[in-house]
Design a protein around this nucleic acid. Structure first.
Lengths: 121, 121
DNA sequence: TCAACGTTTCATCTTTCGTTGAAATGACAT
DNA sequence: ATGTCATTTCAACGAAAGATGAAACGTTGA
């Protein structure tokens, strides 16, 4: 996670619909949700708009997609989200890296896959 | 931390200079940094631009300011940053709230003050 | 009170983002 | 192959954000 990726990630979730999508996909977990299901969960939004938002989140690396028949299933990229948080709070412990390491380890636990070590540089 | 505040927070750090300022202030800790020091650390940026960015971060609730003589000292609002992270990852544990509680507790430890409990709704 | 310093406010212009609806794509069933 | 369904792409317009420099503000020390 470098600065460019972090900016892309934060920009992606700086929009009401996109933030709701990410939070919804975090709840959905590994199963994910079809684009149509996401659109109807969001209410009045047009399919083209949801598609655009999903593309934005995908380009930012925060979600992943897979095709299942006619539907395209989106799910949260948990390691990427953990990395995004870690980038922002990289030195919240002011040098006492053990705190951040533990916090990120917990986020990694949620994702089911381990993330890299936190750099307190 | 509600959705409106979270969106304001993420929007605020969706800009290179502002993300760098927040990360710099996280490293600076409780001492904070003067606006001028922040501006010179950022290099070529104009003072008026830095002032605008600091105002944006302040309005988003991510940093706090205090006057010290001629200078205005800015510092990170650690509880607000922890809450922002908690809002995004509110259900990263998919219902197993203990994970999130621990993670947020660790971020709260970094801030020196406790944050509220994580809502897994 | 005056001058110097650090910081902020304002007006302006340029650039980027958000939204919309129509048309196109890809996959499945008949 | 044809129709249908789910989703995406595209072009166009309006709205919002970013950058800049000049002027104003508040604080300090002479």
């Amino acid at each position: 996670m470098d600065e460019r990726a972090a900016l892309a990630g934060f920009s992606a979730i700086s929009h009401q619909d996109r933030l709701r999508i990410v939070r919804m996909l975090i709840v959905a977990g590994a199963d994910g949700m079809a684009a149509g299901a996401i659109a109807s969960a969001l209410g009045e939004a047009l399919p083209s708009r949801i598609s655009f938002h999903l593309k934005e989140l995908d380009h930012a690396g925060l979600i992943v997609s897979r095709r299942d028949g006619k539907s395209i299933i989106y799910s949260a990229d948990f390691p990427a989200l953990s990395d995004l948080v870690a980038f922002l709070m990289h030195d919240c412990c002011q040098g006492h890296c053990a705190y951040c390491d533990k916090a990120i380890a917990l986020f990694a636990k949620c994702s089911g896959r381990p993330t890299g070590p936190v750099r307190c540089d």
